[in-house]
């Protein structure tokens, strides 16, 4: 990997196991300096574990990891002066006032931002006497974001930065993160929110079951979804064999994707939609959502996670065993 030297982050073959469970299983990606980079994936995909390895909290079981050119495990001390971290939840003294939190964190760095000014910028009143424990979830998130930025980090890790925020606070936070990019700061974030990725991120890696499922800019990923298809959700189980017969499709092209989601791998033509609607009506199935040939990140995401579940279902146990017996 020649990129490794100039990248903000370089991950090659990252593996992290908890007992027999493989939280991250052979993940590789690079993040360029100044990028806003997202880790996206369903719960349990290994996003937070990956972040925690990069932050130096956890030691990788295998793989070569460089963050700002440093090994986060062995050179953690040097790394910690140059990164900012926002945990998924908590991390702030419940008994302190917001300004006290930032003054404390400012003292940890040689060159820190002004606590009062930063607090105003994230929309909290520096003179507020309320302690952290009495702040709303969104206010705590913004304070946590400020604490991640106080040391003028070159790289910030944000684990679900807008979780629990109202739409107003969310868009303010997006503005804030874009401003960071303008100053050359690299941002790595995890999120569940596809609109957040579309609105904010330069590149995204989609993770499923601890491995990379797709990587690219949101636009690149969306263009991949040209693969014509129809996605719908139903309020009751649908007989996919009968549906495939009805649509005159090969039975493998009608796929149950779990949680009442179904995917039809075929051009979403008016004719096919009409046949689908007729079939569902005859079987008295209600449609929840219906997407045809959609080029949203959501459809790519659903498609990729659905594929991953199909692979999981068909993958045989012995094959997995042999893969586990590495080294």
């Amino acid at each position: 990997m020649t990129l490794g030297d100039t990248s903000a982050i370089s991950v090659v073959g990252l593996e992290k196991h908890y007992g027999a469970a493989r939280a991250v299983d052979g993940l590789s990606f690079e993040v360029a300096p100044g990028e806003i980079f997202a880790l996206l994936g369903p719960n349990g995909a290994g996003k937070t574990t990956t972040l925690e390895v990069l932050e130096g909290y956890r030691r990788a079981d295998a793989g070569k990891i460089r963050v700002l050119g440093l090994d986060p495990h062995r050179q953690g001390e040097a790394l910690r002066t140059r990164i900012g971290v926002m945990l998924q939840e908590g991390g702030l003294y419940p008994g302190l006032r917001p300004i006290e939190v930032l003054r404390l964190f400012a003292a940890f760095y040689d060159d820190a931002l002004d606590p009062t000014e930063l607090l105003s910028r994230v929309g909290l009143d520096p003179s507020m006497k309320t302690t952290v424990r009495r702040l709303s979830g969104g206010q705590q998130q913004r304070l946590s974001l400020a604490a991640a930025l106080i040391g003028k980090p070159e790289l910030v890790f944000l684990d679900e930065p807008t979780a629990g925020m109202d739409p107003q606070a969310r868009s303010t936070t997006w503005e804030f993160i874009r401003d960071l990019k303008a100053t050359g700061t690299t941002v790595v974030l995890t999120t569940h929110l596809l609109d957040e990725v579309e609105a904010l991120c330069d590149r995204v890696v989609i993770m499923t079951r601890g491995a990379l499922a797709a990587i690219g800019s949101p636009r690149e990923l969306m263009s991949r979804s040209v693969t014509t298809d129809v996605l719908f959700t139903a309020n009751m189980p649908v007989d996919t064999l009968a549906l495939a017969r009805e649509l005159q499709l090969d039975r493998q092209l009608v796929i149950p994707a779990g949680d009442g989601r179904y995917e039809i791998r075929a051009q979403g033509s008016p004719r096919l939609i009409a046949q689908l609607a007729a079939f569902l009506e005859r079987n008295q199935v209600e449609i929840g959502t219906l997407h045809a040939n959609e080029r949203s990140l959501e459809s790519v995401f659903l498609q990729i996670t659905a594929e991953s579940e199909v692979i999981a279902a068909t993958e045989t146990q012995p094959a997995r065993r042999t893969r586990r017996g590495r080294r």
Binding site: E55, G56, I83, G90, G91, L92, F105
Partner: peptide, 18 residues
């Protein structure tokens, strides 16, 4: 114990305070 519960110890672990 409560600093550990609220993730304060974890968060401090990511700062230059060793």
């Amino acid at each position: 114990g409560f600093e550990r519960r609220y993730g304060v110890l974890k968060r401090l672990g990511a700062t230059p305070l060793s």
